[in-house]
Design a protein around this nucleic acid. Structure first.
Lengths: 343, 343
DNA sequence: CTGAAAGCGCTAACAC
DNA sequence: GTGTTAGCGCTTTCAG
C-alpha cells in the first residue's frame, strides 16, 4: 500500500497541491468550505503530509532530542516523562539517546544531531572529564540546547537545576545531627558539576557544625558492579565511615546491597542518605532517607524553556537558570534513635 | 552558522555532488583516493548529509519508534535500554512515545507514524478495550511492527513475550504452598493479554493444588492513586485475601504502601508476590517475591527481530513468537515461616 | 571512475 | 481564494 501524496489528494479533490497544503495548515488564505473538504478527505484517506518532505522544505523537524546517561534511574525516567508531556502537547516528536556515561559517545551523538535532525536538544551530561567542546559547537549552530540537572557552566544556555550545594549541605547537616563522625560522599565520577556542588555543600555543613569531622569524597563508578566493589572496600577498610551520602540512586542501592551482605546495620553502624527519586524509598529496610528532586517538574520546565527558545526568533539571548527546590525526606536509614537518646 | 550542503562540499573538492554522495556511502564506483579526500573533507567540516533530504529521497528514515505505556516502570525502562542498544548498533535513531495506557492516544500515535516517519515500530500495547484496528492498519502499510510483552494476538507480527500463563501458574502455586487460602489477582485493566494469561495460569494452579480456594480477579487501575483506593477497599473488606498477586510493579508498590498504612503485616497477614523488575525488590521490608522478566533481553530480541524484518525484502512472512523465561524469585514477602512450621 | 540531470513530496512566493 | 512554479538537499539512474 503506497502512501498517498498531497498531489494525489489534490487531484482527487480537483484542487492544486498548494491549496491542499494551505488548507491542511489552516491558512487564512483558504475558504472555510475548502478547508472542510480537504480535512474531510485527509481524514478519510488517513493522509498526513510526508514529514521528511515537509521538514526539508520548512527547515525544521518538529522533533527534539533527549540526551541522557541512562533510563534505568527514577530521576531520568521521571524527567523523560515530564519532557514527553510537554513535547506531546506541542505536537513535537522525541528522539532519545543514551550516553551510558560515555563522554565520547555523547560527543558523537551531538555531532550527529547538528545536521538538522532535531530542532533542539535537552541534555543531562555524562560524567567524565567533560570537555564542553561538542556542546559549544552545537550551541553555535544556533539551535537551542537546554540543560537539566547535570549542566556544564561553560555553555551559555538555559538550565533547569536544583540547588545542589544547598542539598548537599542539608544532607551532611542531617547526618551530623544524627551522630555521624565520619562521612563518605559517594560520587559516580569527577568532572560533574552536581557532584562537586553536592560534595562542597556537605563540606560547608561539616565546617559549620562539627569542624574537623572526617568527610571524604569517594569516587565510585557509574557501573554498579564496580561501584559495589569500591563500596565494599570502603565499608571494610580500617577507618570506614559511619555516614554515607550517595550522590545518585544507584549508589544507594549498591550501598544497601553491600550492607546486607556485610551485615552492616543501618542506621546503627552506618547512616545512609541518598539523592534519589526511588518510588520505593519508604518501603526499604530500613526506609531510605533521600534528597528528592522534582524530576517531573524539571523535565517539564526544561522542555518548556526549549520550546520557548524555539518559538522566539533569536532575540538577544540571556540564559536563564531555573532552580527548583529539592527536599530532604528523612527516614529510618539516618534516624539513629539510640544516639538521639544519649544526647 | 548555516549548514554545509553536499553541493557546497563538492564544490570545495572540485567534484560533482553525486560523486561526493557516493563516496560518503562507500560506493564501489568510487576510487579509493577520491573516497579518502571526501571523507577527509567531510570530517574537517563536520559534514553529515541532511537526514531529511536523504530520507525523502531514499524513502526510509533510519528511525524506529518505541511505543510504550510509560517509562517509570523498571520493566519498560530496562526494555528501552535493550532496544536502544540494538538500535544504536545498527545506527538507527529511536523515537519514543508514551501512551499512558490510553487507547485513543495509542491509536493517534500509530496513525501519525504511518506516514513514513519511521521504518518500524516496537510496541507494548496499552490496556483498555484494545481494538487492534490501528495496529492492523499500520501493519498493512507494509512496515514492520514487533510486539514485546504486551501483545495483541489478532495482529500477525513478530512478538517477544514471556510465558505469562506459566508464570501465573508458578505465582499462584507458590502462594498456595505458603498457606494462602484466598488469593486476589490485581490487574491494571481488562483486555490485556498478559493479564488474562497470568490470571488464568494462577487459576490452573488453584485447580491443581487446592481446588475450591477463592481466587479473584481484581481490576485495579493503571493510575496509582485509584489503584491504592481499590486495594485499600480490598484489604479492609469482609473477606479480604491472604495472598496477592500484583500483575505489575506499580501494584506491588501500592499494595506495600497500603499495608503499611493499614498496619497489615506481610507475610503474616498477607503474602505478596508481584510481576516486577524492581531493582530494590530484595531490599524492601519485607523482601518482595517477584516474577522477574528478562527485560533487557526482551528489548534486545524485539529490536533484533525488527531489524531482521527491515533488512529482508518482504519474503513470505511467518510471524515468530519468541518466548523467554521469567523467573520466580521467592523472598520474605511470601515465605510464611510460621505456617511452614505447622505443616 | 566521474558527472549531469531528474525528482523524492512538500510548501512558499508569487501570479492570477 | 486558488493555482503555478521553483526549489529544499539529497541520491540515483544513466551517459560519458
Amino acid at each position: 500500500m503506497a502512501l498517498l501524496t498531497i498531489k494525489q489528494l489534490a487531484e482527487q479533490l480537483g484542487l492544486a497541491p498548494s491549496t491542499v497544503s494551505k488548507a491542511l495548515r489552516d491558512s487564512y488564505e483558504i475558504s472555510a468550505e475548502t478547508k472542510q473538504r480537504v480535512l474531510e478527505a485527509a481524514r478519510q484517506y488517513h493522509f498526513t503530509p510526508n514529514p521528511y518532505a515537509s521538514s526539508l522544505r520548512r527547515k525544521n523537524s518538529r522533533t527534539i532530542a533527549i540526551v541522557v546517561p541512562e533510563v534505568e534511574d527514577s530521576f531520568f525516567s521521571t524527567a523523560i516523562n515530564g519532557i514527553e508531556f510537554v513535547a506531546h502537547s506541542a505536537d513535537y516528536h522525541v528522539l532519545i539517546y543514551l550516553t551510558h556515561e560515555d563522554q565520547a559517545l555523547e560527543e558523537s551523538i551531538l555531532r550527529e544531531l547538528s545536521n538538522g535532525r532535531v530542532d533542539g536538544i535537552l541534555i543531562s551530561v555524562a560524567t567524565g572529564s567533560a570537555s564542553a567542546r561538542h556542546l559549544l559547537d552545537y550551541n553555535m549552530s544556533g539551535k537551542p540546547l537546554v540543560f537539566f540537572d547535570r549542566v556544564l557552566d561553560e555553555v551559555p544556555v538555559h538550565k533547569v537545576i536544583t540547588d545542589d550545594f544547598e542539598a548537599g549541605y542539608l544532607a551532611s547537616k542531617h547526618l551530623l545531627e544524627n551522630g555521624c563522625t565520619h562521612i563518605s560522599f559517594l560520587s559516580i565520577g569527577d568532572g560533574l558539576n552536581i557532584m562537586k556542588q553536592r560534595f562542597d555543600g556537605g563540606a560547608k555543613a561539616v565546617r559549620e557544625f562539627r569542624p574537623g569531622t572526617p568527610y571524604h569524597y569517594v569516587n565510585c563508578s557509574p557501573d554498579p558492579n564496580t561501584a559495589r566493589i569500591l563500596i565494599q572496600k570502603l565499608l571494610t577498610s580500617a577507618n570506614q565511615p559511619d555516614g554515607i551520602i550517595g550522590a545518585v540512586e544507584k549508589l544507594a542501592i549498591a550501598t544497601y546491597l553491600e550492607c546486607k551482605s556485610l551485615e552492616i546495620r543501618i542506621p546503627e553502624d552506618l547512616r545512609v542518605l541518598a539523592f534519589s527519586n526511588l518510588p520505593t524509598a519508604s518501603l526499604l529496610k530500613p526506609g531510605l532517607s533521600t534528597i528528592r528532586q522534582p524530576a517531573y517538574e524539571i523535565g517539564k520546565k526544561a522542555a518548556s524553556l526549549l520550546f520557548e527558545s524555539l518559538n522566539k526568533n533569536k532575540p538577544p539571548f540571556t540564559p536563564k537558570s531555573i532552580v527548583v527546590p529539592s527536599v530532604l525526606e528523612p527516614r529510618a536509614s539516618t534516624l539513629w534513635k539510640e544516639w538521639q537518646d544519649h544526647q
